[in-house]
């Protein structure tokens, strides 16, 4: 009995490792003990490896896992921390609660892969609360791989507080496979002298639905931020982008930049919102929705590519 369970887990681990690799992850890092890593399949923690300076607590819940991760004060973690979340079966629900703290003067890079290779009816919810302590620096990259069916709802939600001098940069990308339904909702409070960079890149196809809501409040003096969104949608996909930046303090600087490429019957809406209530703050925005640039397409065609290949290269470049 116990033996069967072990076999099942190792089979699941194997499947997750394969899915992780399919999502672009390097599976070797998950077994490298010099690197911190965490692998969660459904509501099971398949492996967890913390290294010096990182406190990692995890609790399996009915539909997922509660995670508490702390980067201890002053620790600069030399190698990236690898996280892998996924669900192998074609249906199910996964809820991740993440409580993350980077203490004062710490530094870490988190690389997360979220993989749902067989999803037909899957819900993946992520609820994160992140605190970037004084002068701490956190880089967070999240790459998704969803498989070809599109029956997935992805609901990442995060609240991020950046304290004085903190630096937070995040890069979310969902380019391979179908999107399904994505509702991305990030909100950031940025303190004095902090820096926040938020990048989202999504490629929607068939009847995918994409909703992106990003909000940064520049509350502290000299806080700086960029919201950059690159969306490509084709077929009957629909996208809605809201990028809000608020300048509440002297010398706060923010920029919202959304560029979308649409093809087929796809429909896109982009609304950059800038609010400023301090006379010395400045927030700018640009948003462009259009088809692929004609000159770029014709240049590649003049090098011998046919039109579809040319468009594909241009869109992938934009999302790279």
């Amino acid at each position: 009995m116990a033996r069967t369970k072990l076999d099942m887990i190792s089979k699941e681990e194997e499947d997750m490792t394969a899915a992780y690799a399919a999502a672009g992850g390097n599976s070797e890092v998950l077994h490298n003990h010099e690197m911190s890593s965490l692998v969660v399949s459904g509501n099971k923690v398949l492996s967890a490896n913390g290294t010096e300076g990182i406190v990692l607590e995890k609790k399996e819940t009915e539909h997922g896992v509660d995670i508490k991760m702390t980067i201890k004060k002053g620790y600069k973690i030399p190698l990236p921390v690898h996280l892998c979340f996924g669900l192998i079966p074609k249906d199910g629900i996964q809820e991740i609660q993440m409580d993350f703290v980077a203490e004062e003067d710490s530094e870490v890079e988190l690389i997360a892969h979220c993989t749902f290779p067989n999803a037909v009816k899957v819900i993946h919810k992520m609820d994160a609360k992140m605190v970037i302590g004084k002068n701490a620096s956190v880089k967070y990259t999240e790459t998704h791989f969803h498989g070809p069916h599109g029956g997935i709802q992805v609901l990442p939600k995060a609240y991020v507080k950046i304290e004085e001098g903190g630096n937070y940069s995040t890069n979310f990308s969902l380019i391979s496979g179908r999107v399904g339904f994505l509702e991305f909702d990030y909100s950031v409070d940025a303190g004095k002298d902090s820096i926040c960079e938020m990048v989202t890149k999504v490629y929607g196809k068939a009847d995918d639905k994409i909703r992106i809501l990003e909000k940064i409040a520049l509350n502290g003096e000299n806080a700086r931020s960029v919201i950059k969104s690159r969306l490509a949608i084709t077929d009957d996909a629909v996208s809605e982008f809201r990028g809000i930046t608020e300048g509440h303090a002297a010398m706060a600087r923010g920029h919202v930049d959304c560029m979308e490429v649409i093809q087929g019957n796809a429909k896109a809406e982009a609304v950059p919102i800038v609010r400023v209530d301090h006379p010395l703050a400045k927030v700018t925005h640009e948003a462009a929705i259009g088809c692929v640039d004609k000159k770029e397409v014709e240049t590649l065609m003049a090098r011998g590519l046919d039109e579809d290949d040319a468009i594909d290269i241009i869109v992938k470049g934009m999302l790279a």
Partner: peptide, 16 residues
């Protein structure tokens, strides 16, 4: 000339 966001010089040169 056109701008190609995200396209590396090496990949652009290889296309032709």
């Amino acid at each position: 000339p056109a701008r190609f966001e995200g396209l590396k010089v090496r990949d652009y040169l290889a296309i032709g």
